[in-house]
Nucleic acid binder design. Structure first.
Lengths: 141, 141
DNA sequence: ATGATACCTGCATGTCTGTACAGGTATGCG
DNA sequence: CGCATACCTGTACAGACATGCAGGTATCAT
């Protein structure tokens, strides 16, 4: 889920042209362009982790439920029952969502209410949902 | 990658109130609300698959490279060299991206050029990148 | 205090998947 | 043709992960 880390990569020192001469290259300018603006491993890792949090059907159903919930929040019990899943499963997934700062919790007595953390997440969810409903928009630009 | 499928769920027949009486419920109206607007398994699966395609560091680096590529497209060779990865690895990942309609290919002689399929994908990528760069916006609504 | 409830966590298991090696196909060149 | 190149695919394996059972903690009611 936290996704595999990108393994060893060559140094990206500016005079990387040396090694380029020993590699398979068709358009040198493209390769150097990639290398200079390369998405760094750490960042790629972070983004991958974000998307991987959203890449599980159960978690998506939980998030969707929170997205459309009247008050914007739901307790574990109602979530589990509503989705027809074991409460431990929902609890496990909520922990994942919590650890990755996708949801926040609020405890009232023995009841714990969860809600989506911000609008950014809501947007991502909407985009995912929209995309999956589209036929497949053909290139514009 | 295609993500695990959501296992058995109870029937969501309208008179689901019967079984509700035998379940743990705190706010009945919330539970029924979830059940009536529940993200269906098939759709949850599709969305999860979309996000899972974006949840790998290597694929993200490939997509990012295509995102910033001068002409919007790159060949496998330059991609592999630019990212410093084995060409078979890049090829495997490009196939995944292709199968899930995230990139398209164009063959010229023995060179194959890949490009992002549409702006929807570009938006999703940008949102992921933006999100990972933010400190952690606090709730607005 | 006793029991019930709401939720959490440790663990085992079946399953999936990213990677690279080995080898295959197709195109271009001389 | 024969060779090199650009890319693809089959396979094996190590690592990751979602799920649910068993059991734990905390809060509430009687």
């Amino acid at each position: 889920m936290t996704t595999r880390s990108v393994s060893a990569q060559p140094s990206l020192s500016d005079p990387a042209m040396d090694e380029l001469c020993q590699e398979r290259v068709i358009h040198v300018e493209h390769v150097t362009a990639i290398r200079h603006a390369l998405l760094q491993n750490a960042e790629a890792q972070r983004i991958a982790t974000l998307f991987s949090v959203l890449s599980d059907p159960t978690r998506l159903q939980v998030l969707h439920a929170l997205l459309i919930a009247p008050g914007g929040e739901l307790c574990v019990c109602d979530l589990a029952t509503g989705l027809g899943r074991d409460d431990t499963t929902i609890s496990h997934q909520l922990r994942v969502l919590r650890q990755h700062k996708v949801v926040t919790m609020r405890k009232v007595g023995r009841v714990v209410y969860y809600r989506l953390v911000d609008n950014h997440i809501r947007q991502l969810l909407h985009m995912g949902i929209d995309h999956s409903n589209e036929p497949s928009e053909q290139e514009v630009c």
